[in-house]
Design a protein around this nucleic acid. Structure first.
Lengths: 253, 253
DNA sequence: CTTGACTCTGCACGTTTATGCACGTTTTGT
DNA sequence: ACAAAACGTGCATAAACGTGCAGAGTCAAG
Protein backbone atom coordinates (compact mmCIF):
# COMPACT_ATOMS: atom_id res chain seq x y z
CA UNK A 1 0.00 0.00 0.00
CA UNK A 2 1.34 3.38 -1.00
CA UNK A 3 1.87 6.07 1.55
CA UNK A 4 -0.51 8.46 -0.13
CA UNK A 5 -3.12 5.72 -0.38
CA UNK A 6 -2.75 5.15 3.28
CA UNK A 7 -3.16 8.81 4.04
CA UNK A 8 -6.28 8.92 1.90
CA UNK A 9 -7.57 5.95 3.85
CA UNK A 10 -6.92 7.71 7.11
CA UNK A 11 -8.75 10.84 6.01
CA UNK A 12 -11.61 8.78 4.71
CA UNK A 13 -11.90 6.88 7.92
CA UNK A 14 -11.74 10.10 9.83
CA UNK A 15 -14.64 11.47 7.84
CA UNK A 16 -16.65 8.32 8.36
CA UNK A 17 -16.08 7.75 12.05
CA UNK A 18 -15.44 11.28 13.18
CA UNK A 19 -12.21 10.20 14.83
CA UNK A 20 -9.04 8.21 14.42
CA UNK A 21 -7.60 6.01 17.12
CA UNK A 22 -3.97 5.46 16.23
CA UNK A 23 -3.71 1.96 17.60
CA UNK A 24 -6.89 0.69 15.96
CA UNK A 25 -6.08 1.98 12.52
CA UNK A 26 -2.52 0.70 12.74
CA UNK A 27 -3.89 -2.76 13.41
CA UNK A 28 -6.46 -2.48 10.65
CA UNK A 29 -3.76 -1.64 8.14
CA UNK A 30 -1.23 -4.07 9.51
CA UNK A 31 1.29 -1.35 10.18
CA UNK A 32 3.29 -0.29 13.15
CA UNK A 33 1.87 2.47 15.26
CA UNK A 34 5.00 4.44 14.53
CA UNK A 35 4.23 4.71 10.86
CA UNK A 36 0.69 5.67 11.55
CA UNK A 37 1.68 8.30 14.01
CA UNK A 38 4.07 9.66 11.45
CA UNK A 39 1.24 9.90 8.96
CA UNK A 40 -0.98 11.62 11.47
CA UNK A 41 1.75 14.10 12.24
CA UNK A 42 2.20 14.90 8.58
CA UNK A 43 -1.48 15.21 7.89
CA UNK A 44 -1.80 17.46 10.87
CA UNK A 45 1.05 19.60 9.57
CA UNK A 46 -0.90 20.05 6.35
CA UNK A 47 -3.90 21.04 8.39
CA UNK A 48 -5.98 18.10 7.22
CA UNK A 49 -6.72 16.81 10.68
CA UNK A 50 -6.35 17.72 14.29
CA UNK A 51 -3.80 15.68 16.14
CA UNK A 52 -4.72 14.73 19.68
CA UNK A 53 -3.31 12.32 22.20
CA UNK A 54 -4.36 8.85 21.17
CA UNK A 55 -5.28 9.63 17.61
CA UNK A 56 -6.84 12.43 15.64
CA UNK A 57 -10.04 14.39 15.20
CA UNK A 58 -11.41 16.16 12.12
CA UNK A 59 -9.84 19.50 11.35
CA UNK A 60 -12.33 22.08 10.24
CA UNK A 61 -14.06 20.60 7.20
CA UNK A 62 -13.11 23.71 5.30
CA UNK A 63 -9.55 22.63 4.76
CA UNK A 64 -10.31 19.02 4.08
CA UNK A 65 -12.44 20.03 1.11
CA UNK A 66 -9.45 21.36 -0.79
CA UNK A 67 -7.05 18.49 -0.44
CA UNK A 68 -5.21 18.16 -3.72
CA UNK A 69 -3.64 21.55 -4.01
CA UNK A 70 -2.24 21.52 -0.54
CA UNK A 71 0.69 19.49 -1.57
CA UNK A 72 1.95 22.34 -3.76
CA UNK A 73 3.85 24.48 -1.30
CA UNK A 74 2.22 24.51 2.11
CA UNK A 75 4.96 26.31 3.99
CA UNK A 76 5.17 29.05 1.42
CA UNK A 77 1.45 29.69 1.51
CA UNK A 78 1.47 29.48 5.26
CA UNK A 79 4.10 32.21 5.57
CA UNK A 80 2.27 34.51 3.18
CA UNK A 81 -1.03 33.85 4.94
CA UNK A 82 0.48 34.59 8.33
CA UNK A 83 1.79 37.97 7.26
CA UNK A 84 -1.45 38.90 5.55
CA UNK A 85 -3.40 37.94 8.66
CA UNK A 86 -1.40 40.41 10.68
CA UNK A 87 -2.26 43.25 8.30
CA UNK A 88 -5.85 43.39 9.45
CA UNK A 89 -6.62 46.13 11.98
CA UNK A 90 -9.40 45.89 14.57
CA UNK A 91 -12.69 47.27 13.32
CA UNK A 92 -11.82 46.97 9.66
CA UNK A 93 -14.04 45.46 7.03
CA UNK A 94 -12.08 43.11 4.83
CA UNK A 95 -12.96 40.97 1.84
CA UNK A 96 -11.39 37.53 1.67
CA UNK A 97 -11.13 35.82 -1.68
CA UNK A 98 -11.27 32.05 -2.06
CA UNK A 99 -8.36 29.66 -2.36
CA UNK A 100 -6.10 27.74 -0.05
CA UNK A 101 -3.94 30.68 0.93
CA UNK A 102 -6.98 32.69 1.92
CA UNK A 103 -8.39 29.86 4.00
CA UNK A 104 -5.10 29.60 5.77
CA UNK A 105 -5.13 33.33 6.30
CA UNK A 106 -8.61 33.20 7.80
CA UNK A 107 -7.43 30.55 10.17
CA UNK A 108 -4.43 32.65 11.19
CA UNK A 109 -6.38 35.81 11.95
CA UNK A 110 -5.89 36.71 15.61
CA UNK A 111 -8.37 34.86 17.79
CA UNK A 112 -9.58 38.02 19.47
CA UNK A 113 -9.69 40.27 16.43
CA UNK A 114 -12.93 42.22 16.18
CA UNK A 115 -13.58 42.84 12.50
CA UNK A 116 -15.95 42.12 9.65
CA UNK A 117 -15.04 39.61 7.00
CA UNK A 118 -16.89 39.47 3.71
CA UNK A 119 -16.34 36.32 1.70
CA UNK A 120 -17.80 34.33 -1.14
CA UNK A 121 -16.03 31.20 0.02
CA UNK A 122 -17.93 28.85 2.33
CA UNK A 123 -14.60 27.32 3.35
CA UNK A 124 -13.54 30.61 4.81
CA UNK A 125 -16.87 31.10 6.52
CA UNK A 126 -16.51 27.73 8.18
CA UNK A 127 -12.95 28.49 9.15
CA UNK A 128 -14.00 31.69 10.86
CA UNK A 129 -16.64 30.01 12.99
CA UNK A 130 -14.13 29.84 15.80
CA UNK A 131 -13.40 33.55 15.75
CA UNK A 132 -16.03 34.85 18.09
CA UNK A 133 -15.51 38.51 17.48
CA UNK A 134 -15.50 38.41 13.72
CA UNK A 135 -18.71 39.16 11.88
CA UNK A 136 -18.95 37.10 8.73
CA UNK A 137 -20.93 38.30 5.73
CA UNK A 138 -21.44 35.46 3.33
CA UNK A 139 -21.91 36.23 -0.34
CA UNK A 140 -24.34 33.85 -1.97
CA UNK A 141 -24.62 32.48 -5.46
CA UNK A 142 -23.88 29.37 -7.42
CA UNK A 143 -20.91 27.50 -6.11
CA UNK A 144 -17.98 27.10 -8.44
CA UNK A 145 -16.62 23.77 -7.43
CA UNK A 146 -13.01 24.14 -8.50
CA UNK A 147 -12.19 26.95 -6.15
CA UNK A 148 -15.15 26.66 -3.77
CA UNK A 149 -16.52 30.15 -4.17
CA UNK A 150 -19.95 31.56 -4.92
CA UNK A 151 -20.28 33.11 -8.35
CA UNK A 152 -22.87 34.33 -10.83
CA UNK A 153 -25.21 37.26 -11.10
CA UNK A 154 -26.57 36.86 -7.61
CA UNK A 155 -23.09 37.08 -6.19
CA UNK A 156 -22.23 40.17 -8.23
CA UNK A 157 -25.41 41.92 -7.10
CA UNK A 158 -24.64 41.22 -3.50
CA UNK A 159 -21.06 42.34 -3.87
CA UNK A 160 -22.18 45.67 -5.27
CA UNK A 161 -23.74 46.55 -1.94
CA UNK A 162 -20.53 46.30 0.04
CA UNK A 163 -17.74 48.70 0.95
CA UNK A 164 -14.58 47.35 2.49
CA UNK A 165 -11.20 48.60 3.63
CA UNK A 166 -9.08 45.78 2.32
CA UNK A 167 -9.46 43.07 -0.26
CA UNK A 168 -7.13 40.09 -0.03
CA UNK A 169 -6.96 38.69 -3.53
CA UNK A 170 -5.82 35.19 -4.38
CA UNK A 171 -4.71 34.51 -7.93
CA UNK A 172 -2.80 31.92 -9.90
CA UNK A 173 -0.46 34.27 -11.71
CA UNK A 174 1.29 37.56 -11.01
CA UNK A 175 3.26 39.04 -13.87
CA UNK A 176 4.90 42.47 -14.37
CA UNK A 177 3.29 43.00 -17.78
CA UNK A 178 0.12 40.95 -17.72
CA UNK A 179 -0.94 41.84 -14.20
CA UNK A 180 -2.71 39.33 -11.98
CA UNK A 181 -4.44 36.46 -13.71
CA UNK A 182 -6.54 33.40 -12.98
CA UNK A 183 -7.81 30.33 -14.76
CA UNK A 184 -11.50 31.10 -15.16
CA UNK A 185 -13.19 34.06 -16.82
CA UNK A 186 -16.17 34.20 -14.51
CA UNK A 187 -13.93 33.91 -11.50
CA UNK A 188 -11.81 36.77 -12.79
CA UNK A 189 -14.93 38.89 -13.12
CA UNK A 190 -15.99 38.19 -9.54
CA UNK A 191 -12.56 39.02 -8.22
CA UNK A 192 -12.69 42.25 -10.19
CA UNK A 193 -16.08 43.05 -8.71
CA UNK A 194 -14.72 42.48 -5.23
CA UNK A 195 -11.70 44.67 -5.89
CA UNK A 196 -13.98 47.51 -6.99
CA UNK A 197 -15.63 47.57 -3.58
CA UNK A 198 -12.45 47.77 -1.52
CA UNK A 199 -10.32 50.80 -0.81
CA UNK A 200 -7.17 48.74 -1.15
CA UNK A 201 -6.33 45.48 -2.92
CA UNK A 202 -3.69 43.14 -1.54
CA UNK A 203 -2.46 40.22 -3.62
CA UNK A 204 -1.42 37.01 -1.87
CA UNK A 205 1.47 35.76 -3.95
CA UNK A 206 3.09 32.56 -2.77
CA UNK A 207 6.38 31.67 -4.42
CA UNK A 208 5.26 29.73 -7.47
CA UNK A 209 2.92 32.45 -8.66
CA UNK A 210 5.41 35.20 -9.32
CA UNK A 211 6.08 35.53 -13.01
CA UNK A 212 3.30 33.10 -13.88
CA UNK A 213 0.47 33.97 -16.26
CA UNK A 214 -2.97 32.38 -16.46
CA UNK A 215 -5.53 32.82 -19.25
CA UNK A 216 -7.77 35.48 -17.72
CA UNK A 217 -6.72 38.81 -16.36
CA UNK A 218 -8.24 39.89 -13.08
CA UNK A 219 -6.62 43.29 -12.81
CA UNK A 220 -3.70 45.21 -14.28
CA UNK A 221 -0.91 45.98 -11.84
CA UNK A 222 -2.06 49.60 -11.64
CA UNK A 223 -5.06 48.45 -9.66
CA UNK A 224 -2.96 46.58 -7.13
CA UNK A 225 -1.83 48.28 -3.94
CA UNK A 226 0.21 45.64 -2.16
CA UNK A 227 1.82 42.30 -2.79
CA UNK A 228 2.49 39.82 0.00
CA UNK A 229 5.37 37.46 -0.74
CA UNK A 230 7.61 34.97 1.02
CA UNK A 231 10.76 35.81 2.91
CA UNK A 232 13.20 34.24 0.49
CA UNK A 233 11.81 35.71 -2.71
CA UNK A 234 14.61 36.91 -4.99
CA UNK A 235 14.81 40.74 -4.98
CA UNK A 236 15.14 40.71 -8.74
CA UNK A 237 11.71 39.10 -9.04
CA UNK A 238 10.19 41.85 -6.93
CA UNK A 239 11.84 44.88 -8.53
CA UNK A 240 9.33 45.29 -11.39
CA UNK A 241 6.45 45.51 -8.95
CA UNK A 242 8.22 47.86 -6.62
CA UNK A 243 9.04 50.09 -9.60
CA UNK A 244 5.36 50.30 -10.39
CA UNK A 245 4.68 51.67 -6.93
CA UNK A 246 3.31 48.50 -5.39
CA UNK A 247 4.05 47.99 -1.71
CA UNK A 248 5.91 44.74 -1.20
CA UNK A 249 5.19 43.03 2.09
CA UNK A 250 7.63 40.28 2.78
CA UNK A 251 7.35 37.57 5.42
CA UNK A 252 10.38 37.66 7.62
CA UNK A 253 12.63 34.61 7.49
CA UNK B 1 -12.65 7.40 23.94
CA UNK B 2 -10.01 10.02 23.36
CA UNK B 3 -9.34 12.63 25.97
CA UNK B 4 -10.14 15.53 23.71
CA UNK B 5 -13.32 13.81 22.62
CA UNK B 6 -14.30 13.50 26.19
CA UNK B 7 -13.75 17.18 26.74
CA UNK B 8 -15.85 17.92 23.70
CA UNK B 9 -18.52 15.67 25.15
CA UNK B 10 -18.43 17.53 28.42
CA UNK B 11 -18.81 20.88 26.70
CA UNK B 12 -21.61 19.52 24.59
CA UNK B 13 -23.40 18.18 27.58
CA UNK B 14 -22.88 21.45 29.35
CA UNK B 15 -24.43 23.33 26.49
CA UNK B 16 -27.37 20.96 26.33
CA UNK B 17 -28.14 20.64 30.01
CA UNK B 18 -26.83 23.97 31.16
CA UNK B 19 -24.71 22.31 33.82
CA UNK B 20 -22.41 19.43 34.58
CA UNK B 21 -22.62 17.19 37.62
CA UNK B 22 -19.22 15.58 38.00
CA UNK B 23 -20.41 12.32 39.45
CA UNK B 24 -23.15 11.76 36.91
CA UNK B 25 -20.95 12.37 33.90
CA UNK B 26 -18.18 10.23 35.32
CA UNK B 27 -20.63 7.36 35.62
CA UNK B 28 -22.05 7.98 32.17
CA UNK B 29 -18.59 7.76 30.66
CA UNK B 30 -17.39 4.94 32.85
CA UNK B 31 -14.52 6.93 34.26
CA UNK B 32 -13.28 7.77 37.71
CA UNK B 33 -14.45 11.03 39.16
CA UNK B 34 -10.84 12.04 39.48
CA UNK B 35 -10.35 12.06 35.75
CA UNK B 36 -13.50 13.99 35.22
CA UNK B 37 -12.60 16.55 37.79
CA UNK B 38 -9.26 16.91 36.14
CA UNK B 39 -10.99 17.60 32.83
CA UNK B 40 -13.25 20.14 34.41
CA UNK B 41 -10.28 21.85 35.98
CA UNK B 42 -8.49 22.03 32.68
CA UNK B 43 -11.49 23.24 30.75
CA UNK B 44 -12.03 25.85 33.41
CA UNK B 45 -8.41 26.92 33.02
CA UNK B 46 -9.09 27.44 29.32
CA UNK B 47 -12.08 29.52 30.21
CA UNK B 48 -14.49 27.14 28.54
CA UNK B 49 -16.59 26.57 31.59
CA UNK B 50 -17.08 27.79 35.12
CA UNK B 51 -15.98 25.36 37.77
CA UNK B 52 -18.28 25.07 40.78
CA UNK B 53 -18.52 22.68 43.67
CA UNK B 54 -20.10 19.49 42.42
CA UNK B 55 -19.61 20.14 38.73
CA UNK B 56 -19.52 23.03 36.30
CA UNK B 57 -21.63 25.75 34.72
CA UNK B 58 -21.35 27.50 31.35
CA UNK B 59 -18.63 30.15 31.29
CA UNK B 60 -20.53 32.59 29.14
CA UNK B 61 -24.03 32.07 27.80
CA UNK B 62 -22.83 31.75 24.23
CA UNK B 63 -19.86 29.45 24.06
CA UNK B 64 -21.04 27.43 21.16
CA UNK B 65 -18.43 25.64 19.15
CA UNK B 66 -20.26 23.74 16.46
CA UNK B 67 -17.19 21.68 15.55
CA UNK B 68 -17.05 20.29 19.06
CA UNK B 69 -20.48 18.81 18.70
CA UNK B 70 -19.22 16.78 15.80
CA UNK B 71 -16.82 14.53 17.55
CA UNK B 72 -19.31 13.51 20.18
CA UNK B 73 -21.57 10.91 18.62
CA UNK B 74 -21.76 10.97 14.87
CA UNK B 75 -23.41 7.56 14.86
CA UNK B 76 -26.73 8.50 16.43
CA UNK B 77 -27.74 11.14 13.92
CA UNK B 78 -26.16 9.15 11.13
CA UNK B 79 -29.15 6.83 10.74
CA UNK B 80 -31.62 9.66 10.28
CA UNK B 81 -29.28 11.45 7.90
CA UNK B 82 -28.73 8.31 5.84
CA UNK B 83 -32.42 7.72 5.31
CA UNK B 84 -33.06 11.33 4.42
CA UNK B 85 -30.19 11.26 1.94
CA UNK B 86 -31.85 8.40 0.12
CA UNK B 87 -35.09 10.35 -0.28
CA UNK B 88 -33.59 12.69 -2.85
CA UNK B 89 -34.40 11.83 -6.46
CA UNK B 90 -32.14 12.69 -9.40
CA UNK B 91 -32.89 16.08 -10.88
CA UNK B 92 -34.66 17.42 -7.84
CA UNK B 93 -34.01 20.77 -6.25
CA UNK B 94 -33.71 20.44 -2.49
CA UNK B 95 -33.13 22.89 0.31
CA UNK B 96 -30.85 21.80 3.12
CA UNK B 97 -31.12 23.50 6.46
CA UNK B 98 -28.19 23.93 8.82
CA UNK B 99 -27.22 21.76 11.75
CA UNK B 100 -25.16 18.67 12.32
CA UNK B 101 -27.74 16.22 11.02
CA UNK B 102 -28.05 18.14 7.78
CA UNK B 103 -24.30 18.22 7.30
CA UNK B 104 -24.20 14.50 7.81
CA UNK B 105 -27.01 14.13 5.31
CA UNK B 106 -25.14 16.19 2.73
CA UNK B 107 -22.18 13.95 3.20
CA UNK B 108 -24.30 10.86 2.72
CA UNK B 109 -25.97 11.97 -0.49
CA UNK B 110 -25.12 9.46 -3.24
CA UNK B 111 -21.79 10.31 -4.84
CA UNK B 112 -23.25 10.28 -8.34
CA UNK B 113 -26.52 12.04 -7.60
CA UNK B 114 -27.29 14.82 -10.06
CA UNK B 115 -29.39 17.40 -8.25
CA UNK B 116 -29.44 20.97 -7.02
CA UNK B 117 -28.91 21.76 -3.37
CA UNK B 118 -29.84 25.14 -1.96
CA UNK B 119 -28.38 25.92 1.44
CA UNK B 120 -27.66 28.78 3.79
CA UNK B 121 -25.05 26.77 5.62
CA UNK B 122 -21.44 27.11 4.48
CA UNK B 123 -20.66 23.85 6.26
CA UNK B 124 -22.99 22.04 3.92
CA UNK B 125 -21.59 23.81 0.90
CA UNK B 126 -18.12 22.69 1.87
CA UNK B 127 -19.33 19.18 2.48
CA UNK B 128 -20.81 18.98 -0.99
CA UNK B 129 -17.57 19.97 -2.68
CA UNK B 130 -16.88 16.32 -3.34
CA UNK B 131 -20.21 15.68 -5.06
CA UNK B 132 -19.35 16.50 -8.62
CA UNK B 133 -22.83 16.32 -10.06
CA UNK B 134 -24.56 18.42 -7.46
CA UNK B 135 -25.11 22.09 -8.16
CA UNK B 136 -24.86 24.11 -4.98
CA UNK B 137 -26.71 27.39 -4.58
CA UNK B 138 -25.37 29.24 -1.61
CA UNK B 139 -27.63 31.67 0.21
CA UNK B 140 -25.74 34.67 1.50
CA UNK B 141 -26.21 36.91 4.49
CA UNK B 142 -24.79 37.52 7.90
CA UNK B 143 -23.50 34.37 9.49
CA UNK B 144 -25.19 33.29 12.69
CA UNK B 145 -22.34 31.70 14.56
CA UNK B 146 -24.21 29.31 16.78
CA UNK B 147 -25.65 27.20 14.00
CA UNK B 148 -23.41 28.34 11.16
CA UNK B 149 -26.08 29.58 8.80
CA UNK B 150 -26.59 32.77 6.87
CA UNK B 151 -29.45 34.92 8.16
CA UNK B 152 -30.87 38.41 7.89
CA UNK B 153 -32.69 40.41 5.27
CA UNK B 154 -30.27 39.60 2.50
CA UNK B 155 -30.80 35.92 3.10
CA UNK B 156 -34.59 36.25 3.12
CA UNK B 157 -34.55 38.20 -0.13
CA UNK B 158 -32.46 35.57 -1.79
CA UNK B 159 -34.63 32.77 -0.47
CA UNK B 160 -37.72 34.38 -1.95
CA UNK B 161 -36.36 33.78 -5.42
CA UNK B 162 -36.15 30.03 -5.08
CA UNK B 163 -38.50 27.14 -5.75
CA UNK B 164 -37.59 23.68 -4.52
CA UNK B 165 -39.08 20.22 -4.39
CA UNK B 166 -38.01 19.27 -0.90
CA UNK B 167 -36.90 21.09 2.21
CA UNK B 168 -35.03 19.13 4.84
CA UNK B 169 -35.62 20.96 8.07
CA UNK B 170 -33.48 20.61 11.17
CA UNK B 171 -34.97 21.69 14.47
CA UNK B 172 -34.33 21.27 18.17
CA UNK B 173 -37.84 20.26 19.18
CA UNK B 174 -40.74 18.32 17.66
CA UNK B 175 -43.93 18.26 19.67
CA UNK B 176 -47.46 17.06 18.83
CA UNK B 177 -49.09 20.28 20.05
CA UNK B 178 -46.43 22.93 19.67
CA UNK B 179 -45.15 21.79 16.30
CA UNK B 180 -41.48 22.12 15.40
CA UNK B 181 -39.46 24.62 17.37
CA UNK B 182 -35.96 26.04 17.62
CA UNK B 183 -33.93 28.20 19.97
CA UNK B 184 -33.66 31.47 18.05
CA UNK B 185 -36.40 33.69 16.68
CA UNK B 186 -34.51 34.88 13.64
CA UNK B 187 -33.48 31.37 12.84
CA UNK B 188 -37.09 30.23 13.09
CA UNK B 189 -38.07 32.93 10.62
CA UNK B 190 -35.44 31.85 8.12
CA UNK B 191 -36.50 28.24 8.37
CA UNK B 192 -40.07 29.34 7.80
CA UNK B 193 -39.03 31.31 4.75
CA UNK B 194 -37.27 28.27 3.38
CA UNK B 195 -40.29 26.06 4.01
CA UNK B 196 -42.48 28.46 2.05
CA UNK B 197 -40.40 27.94 -1.05
CA UNK B 198 -40.49 24.15 -1.03
CA UNK B 199 -43.29 21.89 -2.21
CA UNK B 200 -42.70 19.52 0.68
CA UNK B 201 -41.11 19.90 4.11
CA UNK B 202 -39.29 17.01 5.75
CA UNK B 203 -38.24 17.23 9.40
CA UNK B 204 -35.07 15.49 10.53
CA UNK B 205 -35.90 14.29 14.02
CA UNK B 206 -33.21 12.36 15.81
CA UNK B 207 -34.33 10.63 18.98
CA UNK B 208 -33.80 13.29 21.61
CA UNK B 209 -35.88 15.84 19.73
CA UNK B 210 -39.23 14.06 19.80
CA UNK B 211 -41.46 15.56 22.42
CA UNK B 212 -39.05 18.42 23.07
CA UNK B 213 -40.09 22.04 22.83
CA UNK B 214 -37.85 25.06 22.24
CA UNK B 215 -38.79 28.72 22.66
CA UNK B 216 -39.61 29.64 19.06
CA UNK B 217 -41.99 27.93 16.74
CA UNK B 218 -40.85 27.31 13.19
CA UNK B 219 -44.00 25.71 11.86
CA UNK B 220 -47.14 24.04 13.15
CA UNK B 221 -47.42 20.35 12.39
CA UNK B 222 -49.96 21.07 9.67
CA UNK B 223 -47.18 22.49 7.55
CA UNK B 224 -45.02 19.40 7.91
CA UNK B 225 -45.22 16.63 5.33
CA UNK B 226 -42.79 14.03 6.61
CA UNK B 227 -40.82 13.15 9.69
CA UNK B 228 -37.61 11.12 9.55
CA UNK B 229 -36.84 9.23 12.74
CA UNK B 230 -34.50 6.56 14.03
CA UNK B 231 -35.24 2.86 13.77
CA UNK B 232 -35.78 2.22 17.45
CA UNK B 233 -38.20 5.06 18.10
CA UNK B 234 -41.12 3.95 20.26
CA UNK B 235 -44.32 3.65 18.18
CA UNK B 236 -46.24 5.45 20.91
CA UNK B 237 -44.09 8.51 20.39
CA UNK B 238 -44.89 8.52 16.70
CA UNK B 239 -48.62 7.93 16.84
CA UNK B 240 -49.62 11.60 17.37
CA UNK B 241 -47.79 12.62 14.22
CA UNK B 242 -49.12 9.78 12.15
CA UNK B 243 -52.63 10.67 13.28
CA UNK B 244 -52.12 14.16 11.94
CA UNK B 245 -51.39 12.77 8.51
CA UNK B 246 -47.62 13.15 8.62
CA UNK B 247 -45.64 10.53 6.80
CA UNK B 248 -43.24 8.78 9.17
CA UNK B 249 -40.05 7.62 7.58
CA UNK B 250 -38.13 5.30 9.82
CA UNK B 251 -34.54 4.14 9.41
CA UNK B 252 -34.43 0.37 9.28
CA UNK B 253 -32.66 -1.28 12.19
C1' DC C 1 25.44 -4.39 -13.12
C1' DT C 2 27.00 -1.56 -9.44
C1' DT C 3 27.08 2.31 -6.53
C1' DG C 4 25.36 5.98 -3.93
C1' DA C 5 21.58 8.98 -2.60
C1' DC C 6 17.12 8.83 -1.04
C1' DT C 7 12.71 7.21 1.00
C1' DC C 8 9.93 4.34 3.73
C1' DT C 9 9.27 1.41 7.54
C1' DG C 10 9.88 -0.80 12.01
C1' DC C 11 12.42 -1.14 16.32
C1' DA C 12 14.60 0.56 20.63
C1' DC C 13 15.01 3.98 23.76
C1' DG C 14 13.89 7.69 26.86
C1' DT C 15 10.15 11.11 27.59
C1' DT C 16 5.59 12.80 28.16
C1' DT C 17 0.76 12.21 29.13
C1' DA C 18 -3.36 10.06 31.00
C1' DT C 19 -5.51 7.66 34.54
C1' DG C 20 -6.83 5.67 38.98
C1' DC C 21 -5.91 5.24 43.83
C1' DA C 22 -4.70 6.89 48.50
C1' DC C 23 -4.78 10.41 51.71
C1' DG C 24 -5.58 14.72 53.81
C1' DT C 25 -8.30 19.09 53.19
C1' DT C 26 -12.26 21.96 52.09
C1' DT C 27 -17.04 22.68 51.32
C1' DT C 28 -21.84 21.66 52.03
C1' DG C 29 -25.97 20.43 54.28
C1' DT C 30 -28.23 19.27 58.42
C1' DA D 1 -20.77 21.29 65.04
C1' DC D 2 -20.58 17.19 62.59
C1' DA D 3 -20.82 13.88 58.86
C1' DA D 4 -20.80 13.21 54.07
C1' DA D 5 -19.62 14.59 49.76
C1' DA D 6 -16.53 16.91 46.86
C1' DC D 7 -12.02 18.35 46.30
C1' DG D 8 -6.78 18.70 45.35
C1' DT D 9 -2.30 16.57 45.54
C1' DG D 10 1.13 13.19 45.20
C1' DC D 11 2.25 8.94 43.35
C1' DA D 12 2.45 4.68 40.54
C1' DT D 13 1.44 2.51 36.23
C1' DA D 14 0.45 2.03 31.59
C1' DA D 15 -0.26 3.95 27.30
C1' DA D 16 1.06 7.11 23.85
C1' DC D 17 4.66 9.82 22.12
C1' DG D 18 9.05 11.55 19.57
C1' DT D 19 13.64 10.60 18.04
C1' DG D 20 17.49 8.32 16.36
C1' DC D 21 18.90 4.45 13.87
C1' DA D 22 19.16 0.50 10.84
C1' DG D 23 17.48 -2.48 7.15
C1' DA D 24 14.78 -2.83 2.78
C1' DG D 25 13.43 -0.95 -1.30
C1' DT D 26 13.71 2.50 -5.30
C1' DC D 27 15.87 5.23 -8.62
C1' DA D 28 19.28 7.34 -11.43
C1' DA D 29 23.95 7.96 -12.69
C1' DG D 30 28.13 5.77 -13.74
Amino acid sequence: MLTSERKAFILDRLRRDGRIVAKTVAEALGLSEDTLRRDLRELAAEGLLLRVHGGALPASPAIAALPARWSVSPQSKMAVAAVAARMVQPGQVIILDGGTTSVQMARLLPRDLAATVVTHSPSIAVELAGHERITVEMIGGRLFRHSMVAMGTVAVEMIAGIRADLFFLGVTGVHPDYGVTTGDAEEAAIKRALARQAAETVVLASAEKLGAVSPFRVLPLTEIDSLVVEADTAPALLAPYRDRGITIIQAEG
